[in-house]
Amino acid sequence: MTKKNILAGMALVVGLVIPSLAFAANEGEEPKHPKQGWPHEKIIGAHYDRAAAQRGFQIYKEVCHACHSLNLIAFRQLEGIGFSEPEIKAIAASFTVMGEPNMETGDVEERPGKPFDYIPSTFANPEAAAASNNGAVPPDLSLMVKAREGGASYIYSILTGYREPTAEDLKHVSGGKIPDGAHFNPYKTGHVIAMPPPLAEGIVTYTEGQPAASVEQMAYDVSTFLAWAAEPKLEQRKHMGFLIVAFLLITSGLLFWSYKRISKQVLGH
């Protein structure tokens, strides 16, 4: 094959992969996310901002948890964002979970959480969650960062994107006005969101030595925490990826050299 053909062949490979881009693309209506460049999105040295993730857990516990479950996270896993064993024990004990059936009576009683427990939902079942939230179950947040285009940036945008709609904004809203009890948020598909603005100045008090709990800071922190919750093995994966790619680059070079040598021996060129 000529060089031109090889180029065209490479274009084919790219062309076959690119369609996935096309259906990953958004409606083109939502504005660009203001917050980009998260430390965990780097290729080399990717890491979760531990301090931010710990503050983010505090936001989740004190704000989001009132409505949103986090079913896939057990307290023991909080080790992943740098909480120590005593800290995890204390965090777990601050939640109340349904215990095991009593050996004598068979009654199930509530007890303080333990590290092996999963973070309990505020609601006993989805019906109860729906009943308290205008008939819709607030989605579980465990995988939210991976379930939305834009990842952590999307969460940050939603949390900081609430504002009064202008007349121009309302043109893009179906029906031309915001339904009662709903809110305008340009980052949500359709620009209407049922969730009231969850973050406000002073809603959470950070411990001494932490940055001031502005809405932007809280949004950054809880987005970092939810990014970790969705992909707790990310650091390990990217670190391993760096080693694998380095190894395979060297191996490919050696194998190419040995192929060329063998080719010279058996084919003469």
């Binding site: 790619v245 395979l248 680059l249 191996t251 490919s252 194998l255 190419f256 040995s258 192929y259 063998i262 080719s263 058996v266 084919l267």
Partner: peptide, 16 residues
């Protein structure tokens, strides 16, 4: 050994 060497290189490139 010709194609085993050549394919080994291609395998490595694909895995990369």
């Amino acid at each position: 050994p010709y194609h085993t060497a050549k394919d080994a290189f291609m395998v490595s490139l694909l895995l990369l």
